[in-house]
Design a protein around this nucleic acid. Sequence first.
DNA 1: TATGAATGAGTATTCATTCAT
DNA 2: GATGAATGAATACTCATTCAT
Lengths: 204, 204, 204, 204
Amino acid sequence: MMLKQRRLPAEERKIVIVRAAIDVFSESNYRVAKISDIAARAGVTDPMIYKFFDSKKALFVEVLTLTSRKTIEKFGIQNFITEDSLTNIENFRRVLKKMLLTYLSSMRKYRRELKIFYQAISEIDDPDIQQVIRGHYNNFASMIKPVFQQAVDKRILSGRLEPEMIAWDINGFMIQQNALFLADLYSERNADVLLTERMNSWFS
Amino acid sequence: MMLKQRRLPAEERKIVIVRAAIDVFSESNYRVAKISDIAARAGVTDPMIYKFFDSKKALFVEVLTLTSRKTIEKFGIQNFITEDSLTNIENFRRVLKKMLLTYLSSMRKYRRELKIFYQAISEIDDPDIQQVIRGHYNNFASMIKPVFQQAVDKRILSGRLEPEMIAWDINGFMIQQNALFLADLYSERNADVLLTERMNSWFS
Amino acid sequence: MMLKQRRLPAEERKIVIVRAAIDVFSESNYRVAKISDIAARAGVTDPMIYKFFDSKKALFVEVLTLTSRKTIEKFGIQNFITEDSLTNIENFRRVLKKMLLTYLSSMRKYRRELKIFYQAISEIDDPDIQQVIRGHYNNFASMIKPVFQQAVDKRILSGRLEPEMIAWDINGFMIQQNALFLADLYSERNADVLLTERMNSWFS
Amino acid sequence: MMLKQRRLPAEERKIVIVRAAIDVFSESNYRVAKISDIAARAGVTDPMIYKFFDSKKALFVEVLTLTSRKTIEKFGIQNFITEDSLTNIENFRRVLKKMLLTYLSSMRKYRRELKIFYQAISEIDDPDIQQVIRGHYNNFASMIKPVFQQAVDKRILSGRLEPEMIAWDINGFMIQQNALFLADLYSERNADVLLTERMNSWFS
DNA sequence: TATGAATGAGTATTCATTCAT
DNA sequence: GATGAATGAATACTCATTCAT
């Protein structure tokens, strides 16, 4: 068991602060969260926050950026869809569905990050924040598209729907399920059925 | 020549305040917007706001409630889907698509209301606000469901997908397009193609 | 005896605040003085200060401006030097000396204002503050000059030294005596002797 | 090629810090200047400052003291007024005038130090600072007085005006010109004319 | 010796809300 | 009924200074 260290190297301290920020932001929201709460949660005093971040907003943007990166890594379609799974449409379909359901079921675990991400829409007029949000959705789509492109190239998919279109459909599906989840209106069954419908459309 | 009216009947003045609130909230967000800006925009003094609303939050909730009501009225599926259009699947499909596209294209006009609605997600922990949000999505689905139920009853729809499921699919589709729209990532072509795909699934 | 009024018309309240500011600024200095001290002294809360002044600096500039105006009014050379006193050099000289000595002896009474004025030199890089300071010295000189010009016109003064020059000499004399006074190095006798010397030079 | 020196003898490092302090204080003022800026300018870390000075104020007082000493040395009346120049009033007068004009024209070069000195007036309530200021003016006068005393002793000056009085007149003249200079109201011509007038009074 | 890490204490400014008139 | 006057309560951010290593 590690006691709380009094002095930490900068790198580690920064991580501790970001983690605290995720906690505190998600427990209320960007505007309500107080720097002093974040500091307390991180076990430091307020000024330490400002050693690493120029402002509360800069910290929020960092949290957003990191969350975006982590989400996309975690989604990690490329880890699921191996060369192997692309040899055969049934394989591809099975693996894809498993992946999407896995993602959906991870919402519960990443509710905090999810909530912060949706908070950012309230601040969408801020250029820095807008950039992270748009970057995130674009990156998400960009990660998915080539997988479907490969499937088309390998003739296991008809190409009737452009890979880009499918990518944005997946993106959109996640957005809607996330939103419903945050409003406590998420239904696993609904999500499952609707996902199946969509897959039918992608794979027809 | 129109002078600023000195005295307005209470009901009208309340409407003026709510309109001002929509303007001001949407120009920044619930936390940033100032009561004094809303009052100025409405042409009243700050304390007047408190004549009509107990608090800033109460005003926000009112705006939310009214916006929800208006959105649902405007969507007005019952106005589109007449008895007549339910006699024949092609009619139904055509009218439905027209309605959904109309709604999509109205996003531009109602961007202000849309933005406020998404702001509420930052405040989802507040019970009053959560209630409006959930109520809105539920009402939206409840409005759509019976139309499809009728279609099933009238045998112009197979009933393979439950009307409730379709209702939530439509609901979700709107949520995702709204979110993309607010992030300036809305693509009319994408929306159109993906909507067509979904309709195929509902009507198969 | 007047009890401290709870509610005061804006005009009066502003005066109370400015007076409090003079007290508080002079008891320490512009940077050390706290808005909350000024507010407390004025018998109001901090936000009231901001109803009248945009910032602490704005309040300081107001104090400076008012002090300048008051000082110049109080010096009021035009009140001393009447048509009458300009008929004859001895009269003029006597009245002038009396006036200057009066001013010098008023330093004690106006120490607070004096101190604030010299504080401004620490802030001379601020354009607003610089403007007040320069304006003050220029106004001071501009007030004195025409009196000596009249004396020259009326031939009771030789004009060997330009009126403008004399004006700046008086101005400078006050500056030096003020500075010494603030450093507790003021000597009435010295001031008196040196003033006599200068008058000899002006009137020769 | 000069690399930043890693280790400097303590005395030199102290000098470097004081120089940096003069720069930084004069660029804003005592209250606004930051220790970290001074440290950065001196090429040391913040805590190093505290190796040499107990506090920011102590550093300011040191700067003041050194500036006072340097100013007085630089004024160095004793360097100008040699035995030789005291044999004859014309010589004395010429040399004195040259010296005072030299001092005046050096204001431009020593603006930084001058500015810091006037900043101290804002802090005149601090006993340490008051002591330096008063000490400075007193030393200044004390340096000048004996020169005129000698002139009186040598009968090249009448003694009508006591040497002490003349000393304070010179002192005051410098104070006023410094103040006008800092307010950007310095006029070389005015200074020259007024100085001549005063010399007439001292030498009559 | 030197410094990176850390903080105590402070403070100008903001704004929703109240209330006397 | 309407408002000008007033405030309680809050909070992001700063900086001189200390101390463990």
